[in-house]
């Protein structure tokens, strides 16, 4: 039986990797993958905690997170496709017509 601490440490590492990925990467698709990594880090923590506390709330939450993440993907990819059609590039440095 692996101790719950290790799961939480792993999930923290994944979460931080995801957050850093959002901040340093320039491709919206990769940024989006990093966001998914953050959400799944939370899922891992939920499942580990649910096992530790011996109740199901955490596991149920995971289903909601996965469902909502799917809804976000639907909207996000549609937006990215639209941007690509207009600019033929999806680098966030090129998405810069708004500033001031």
């Amino acid at each position: 039986m692996v101790k719950v601490d290790y799961y939480i440490i792993l999930s923290a590492i994944l979460f931080i990797t995801g957050a850093l990925g959002v901040l340093v990467r320039r491709n919206p698709l990769i940024i989006f993958m990093s966001v998914e990594l953050m959400l799944n880090a939370a899922n891992l923590a939920f499942v580990a905690f649910a096992n530790m506390h011996n109740n199901l709330d955490g596991q149920i939450f995971v289903f909601f997170v996965m469902t909502v993440a799917a809804a976000e993907v639907a909207v996000g990819l549609a937006l990215i496709v639209q941007i690509f059609k207009a600019k033929h590039s999806i680098n966030v440095d090129d998405i810069n017509s708004l500033k001031g």
């Binding site: 979460f15 995801g18 959400l39 997170v65 976000e72």
Partner: peptide, 13 residues
């Protein structure tokens, strides 16, 4: 959203 969900996970823990 990522921050909110991870925060909720820790509060739940």
């Amino acid at each position: 959203t990522g921050f909110v969900v991870y925060g909720i996970a820790l509060v739940y823990g």
